[in-house]
Design a protein around this nucleic acid. Structure first.
Lengths: 333, 333
DNA sequence: TTGAAAGCGCTAACAC
DNA sequence: GTGTTAGCGCTTTCAA
């Protein structure tokens, strides 16, 4: 097993010191042109590639960002991640993705692992069950996305969120305006703050239009498909709801599964989903949606993070991105 | 800025040598119980966490796998990745994901980067335009997934694939059996071998049933939505096709976009897609599909890779995983 | 402009 | 059982 080419081999071959080779690799200006050429030639000849591990150890920078999300199978997160990755890659950073599956123990473990691997920064969609994040991450820059961390940490980190309450308010207002009166809502529990905020927007809209809040129309479960199927079935069979607002894309799947059991007339029910996806254009039912600014969310997060990494100080920011209403239903009832 | 706790600090504090601390961390059996306890206590007190970078540099193992795919936004790949990640994590490996966007230059660059970062192994859905992969990756174990690498490399790597030809043969056979006669197909160009194989299966089925291969019914483009929209439109307006077989999930989106322009009667067209997704159950059209064994694909790949990493030798394997036909269309024409 | 040498934090061979 | 020490491959003072 032949060894990898090291900086020493290049130095020996080129008849210079390791330091000089290092300077050439790093484009240090202080190398004579001829020396530099000679070294570059030898590098090419030997096919030398610097060992990034050694570099990182020495220079205390891995050019790696850790991204912790709930689940890579969820298109919302994939899209956010893609926003992060593209910008990160442009700036020579790589990204390590970890899935918590909404398990805060897993979240904690991944944070540890990534810190020990000396990532330069972290972007986290937290489960929310972890307090005193600073003690976990020490000086490593962290940007929270999509969800608000524990209240004690809220002031001490940069946070990039979606305008959940506003968007839901607008969505539900739309439903009311076009004639729906008994709007059911299924959303995640407040483990993740998004569920809570969306519920606030829902209530605000009802209030605005002088509609009563009917407790049996409000179903708070998890952000998972199976739970939602049960909750949606309840809404459909036990209440007088004429619309279902699904708190995210997974909940929508559960809702649709339940709606499928209805007869044709009952299927006239209104549907609104938080999270837009392309296939909604080809659904048998006309499903309105709130389109989240996923790519933008990721981009904002990584930009702030890279700024922090490069030493930018200043007060911690809490940013909100606007969502957009996509109306597909043309004829009501 | 206070320094991180190092093994030396622990050693000093506990009154032992660095070597002993190292032994404790690595559960080496050769440490006296009391010493071990004492060290563990100090580790906890100081909140010591080993620097994985230094460890990796020393031990030549990063416990990291590089995964190179086309695009994380494609649910097919996400699912494969999830299969990889779960098994990798169980075995204490982390995963770095990179998107080529079907650009072989990007692929090459990522391979370089990951190799320089000393990943322990690579799993790659190659664009196929790279020859002599061995010279790129040297001794680093590589498993190719989904697509066959350059023919010169085929014998020299482990490869995990889907039974593309068989699955397409079965799918098209089904279409013929239920009465379709002019089956159009849109598939990716043979940059990726999957397109080619699926086309083979298509032709084989026609032949089996003594149907002519009609060149104008075969559209070979890219695996992207926009291209497919144009090709599907052509199929629908310029040919007599009564079915469209979409070569993957992206192509299906383009196809559906084209079909949307049809009138109700024309919409009776048959649809079959390579790649199954949950939302197909809620589509306005009844779309049959070939369900790829995505998770399994990922699992097989990572298992083989970890075996290679742990030094397992033996001949390189080329494995095929079975796909499954999902029939949704009940009444033909 | 270049080289010598220290050292990033850890592991492993060897010695005791 | 435990300590000493060399060194993984690189960058970065400090001197020359």
């Amino acid at each position: 097993m032949e060894k990898n080419t090291t900086i020493k081999m290049v130095a020996d071959e080129a008849g210079v010191s390791e330091a000089t080779v290092s300077r050439v690799i790093n484009n240090s200006k202080k190398v004579k042109y001829e020396t530099s050429q000679k070294v570059k030639k030898t590098i090419k000849e030997l096919g030398y590639q610097p060992n990034e591990l050694a570099r990182s150890l020495r220079s205390n920078s891995t050019k790696t960002i850790g991204v912790i999300i709930s689940n890579i199978l969820n298109p919302f997160f994939t899209s956010v991640v893609r926003g992060i990755e593209d910008y990160a890659n442009q700036n020579d950073y790589n990204v390590i993705i970890c899935n918590t599956d909404e398990n805060s123990e897993k979240e904690k473990r991944y944070v540890q692992t990534l810190i020990n691997r000396k990532v330069d920064g972290l972007i986290i969609a937290t489960t929310g069950n972890i307090s005193n994040y600073r003690s976990l991450v020490n000086k490593t820059p962290v940007v929270f996305i999509d969800r608000i961390p524990h209240k004690d940490d809220r002031e001490n980190f940069d946070i990039v969120l979606v305008e959940n309450e506003v968007a839901t308010y607008q969505a539900v207002s739309h439903l009311i305006k076009v004639g729906y009166r008994n709007i059911g809502i299924i959303t995640g529990n407040d483990v993740s703050t998004t569920g809570y905020e969306r519920l606030l927007g829902y209530k605000k809209a009802l209030k605005e239009f002088d509609l009563p809040v009917q407790p049996d129309l409000i179903k708070v479960g998890s952000f998972l498909g199976d739970d939602s199927y049960k909750l949606a079935s309840k809404l459909l069979t036990e209440t007088n709801c004429d619309t279902i607002f699904s708190g995210n894309n997974m909940i929508l799947m559960g809702t649709l599964k339940a709606v499928k059991n209805l007869n044709e007339i009952e299927k006239k029910i209104g549907l609104m989903s938080f999270d837009d996806e392309e296939w909604l254009n080809y659904s048998s039912l006309e499903i309105d949606s709130v389109k989240q600014p996923t790519i933008l969310l990721g981009e904002k997060a990584i930009k702030i993070l890279l700024d922090r990494i490069s030493g930018q100080g200043g007060k911690y920011k809490e940013i909100r991105c606007q969502a957009e209403l996509v109306i597909r239903k043309r004829h009501i009832k």
